[in-house]
Amino acid sequence: MDSAASKKKLPEILSGGQQQRVQLARAVVHNPDFLILDEPTVGLDVESAELFLTNVKKFGVTALVSSHNINILEKYANKLLFIDNGEIIYFGDLKKFIQKYNQQAYKGIYFKTDDRDKIEAELKQQGLNFEVDEGGIIVNDAILNSVIQIIIKYGKTESISDFQKSLRDIYYEMKVSQ
């Protein structure tokens, strides 16, 4: 739908993404100092959610965004207020929070094998902590050599790269440890 046709329609009959943009326009037209946005991207496809938050950022207004969409928050937020069961777990710079939880070095090991199940079974049997990643596994740097030796038994290592945990990874680790 082109914007000329959209201008003539009532907001109620616009798509969810278009309605969100109308609401944002209504809010910023008054030049507020602060916006409070509760789950502003719920029901939006990825493209519309990104466009909405890009527009919020473009207006340069401070916004408090409550959201369960952790992936998108990491891309657009610069501060994080992490509350769990009414307790403030962290408040401050988002990048510093992520760096704090990426103190340990992690490696992504990508390999080819027909025996992936055997590799995972042996890693578990030896008590080595790992996470499955598409096409590979993520391990703490301290056990890298042990893991490579197991992979070599059953396949061929293709690449090893540094791995940084995302905000989503950190959040799920924190939830599991509670």
Results as ranks from 00 to 15, higher is better:
R168L: 11
L73N: 05
N102F: 01
K79D: 12
G60K: 13
S166Q: 04
V139W: 03
V139Q: 14
L167D: 06
E122I: 13
K100V: 02
I150C: 03
A49Y: 05
E50M: 09
K75H: 08
A142F: 07
R168H: 15
I151Y: 07
L167N: 09
N140Q: 11
A77E: 07
K165I: 00
R116V: 15
G136H: 06
N102V: 00
G60F: 01
I152M: 08
S159E: 00
L51H: 01
K156L: 07
Q125I: 04
Y106P: 01
L64R: 07
L73M: 14
D93H: 02
L144R: 11
K58G: 01
Q104P: 01
H68T: 11
E158M: 03
S48H: 07
S146N: 15
F82R: 11
I138P: 00
E50N: 03
K107D: 08
R116D: 12
L167A: 03
N129Y: 02
S48N: 15
L80Q: 12
S66Q: 09
Y110D: 09
I88N: 00
F52M: 10
K118D: 12
D114A: 10
Y90H: 05
K112C: 05
G127V: 01
G136W: 04
F59S: 05
I143V: 12
E74M: 10
V132I: 08
E87N: 14
F111D: 08
N71A: 13
D169I: 02
L80D: 13
Y106G: 07
N78M: 09
H68W: 06
I150H: 03
E131I: 11
Q103N: 14
K153A: 06
K124M: 09
T157G: 08
I109R: 14
F130Y: 15
K75M: 06
Y76W: 08
